[in-house]
Every structure is written in structure tokens, then in C-alpha cells.
Nucleic acid binder design. Structure first.
Lengths: 87, 87
DNA sequence: AAAGTATTTAGATATTTGTCTAAATATATA
DNA sequence: TATATATTTAGACAAATATCTAAATACTTT
């Protein structure tokens, strides 16, 4: 839960998630969407991966990143506890 | 959105939300649930308030804090975009 | 009005975080 | 095998954050 919220607490990382929602992308393609350096994006991708929000698959010299929606279920369940009526 | 995720990115603050889900509480009551100092909790409450997750109401010398669930709807809507099928 | 209780504000400090450049690793191609 | 391309790792640094103690503010009670 901690790694999850930590990963979500950055505009760039949230934007990466939205990019990957549209289609899988290589690290380089993701980098091209931002003005931030490659190493910085790589670091963001690492945090997203640690949180289980994305997964990476090597294909030749490229690494394809894709969204992992199962974790989203988990986090939505956490939020739902606040929507249950209290007396 | 930024203030929201920022507010959620701390275990203490998330625990405060869970406390307030059960019942409204004064700042002092919330402080008693933790080993952290009063001023620190006060700061956490401020961030939660900025995010719109809690609201505060003065009552005599006490300040009652309560959960604000409408913002939870907003954040859940954000998460839902990832559960819509692509392709 | 003075003293006590509840809470916040101010200021300091150690830790975490986002970013960068330079270097390392891995694969592809000439 | 040498060079080019894709990506990550390492190390440095400034900015943000969580925490603390001390002081300020506000209300209540004696």
C-alpha cells in the first residue's frame, strides 16, 4: 500500500500510467513524451514497477512497459471503505 | 489531484482517515491515537484539509475533524479510467 | 483577571525525493 | 569485431517532507 501511494504521488508517474493505458510502450517512447531526461524516467518506471502498477518485458534491445490494472482493484477497494455508511 | 495524492502518501494520514471514518474526533483525540507529537499531527490534518479529505469545525476550545467523502468519489473516478478496456 | 487546556504556528533538522550528467550494460548492425 | 542504439545504474545535489521543541493564540474556568 505504501509503495502504491508513493508511486502515485508524482504527476510524471501518473502521466506515464495514462500513456500506458492507451498502449504498451518502450522506455524510449515514454521518454519522448516528456522533457525529463532518460535516467529520470527510468527511475520513475522503476518506482511504478515496484508498486506493481506496470510491468516490463524485454524484447531485443527494447524494453516494453505495460499497465497492470490488478493493483488498481486493490487500491479502489481501499477507497471503498470510506464510502460505507456509518450510523 | 496533486494535493490529494500528496495527502494520501503518508501512513499516518491514511490512518487518520480511517479513524475519522468511524467517528468525528477532536484534534486531541486524534493525537492520542499516535505516538507522534501534537504539532506534527496538526500539520498532517492541515494537509488532509488542503486536499479536501477532511473538514474542521470549531466548537468551543475544541476543533472537530470529520471525513469528507465527496473527494473520494473524484479520486475513484480517476482510477476508473484504467479499468476501461483498451482495443 | 489569572491560570489551565486545546490547538496551531514558527523555526530547526534529518531524511526522502526528483532531477541531472557520466558511466555501465546489453543488444543490433555494419 | 567495432560502432551505434536502448536502457539502466551510480553518484551528486537542490528541493520537499516529517518530525521535533518552543512559542503563540484562543477558549474556559476559577
Amino acid at each position: 500500500m505504501n509503495a502504491l501511494f508513493k508511486a502515485l504521488n508524482d504527476p510524471t508517474r501518473r502521466e506515464i500510467l495514462e500513456l500506458l493505458q492507451q498502449r504498451d510502450m518502450t522506455a524510449g517512447e515514454i521518454v519522448d513524451h516528456f522533457t525529463i531526461s532518460g535516467p529520470s524516467i527510468s527511475h520513475h518506471l522503476d518506482l511504478l514497477k515496484q508498486a506493481g502498477l506496470v510491468s516490463a518485458e524485454k524484447e531485443g534491445q527494447y524494453i516494453y512497459y505495460s499497465l497492470n490494472t490488478t493493483v488498481v482493484d486493490e487500491i479502489m477497494k481501499w477507497f471503498l471503505q470510506f464510502k460505507t455508511k456509518k450510523k
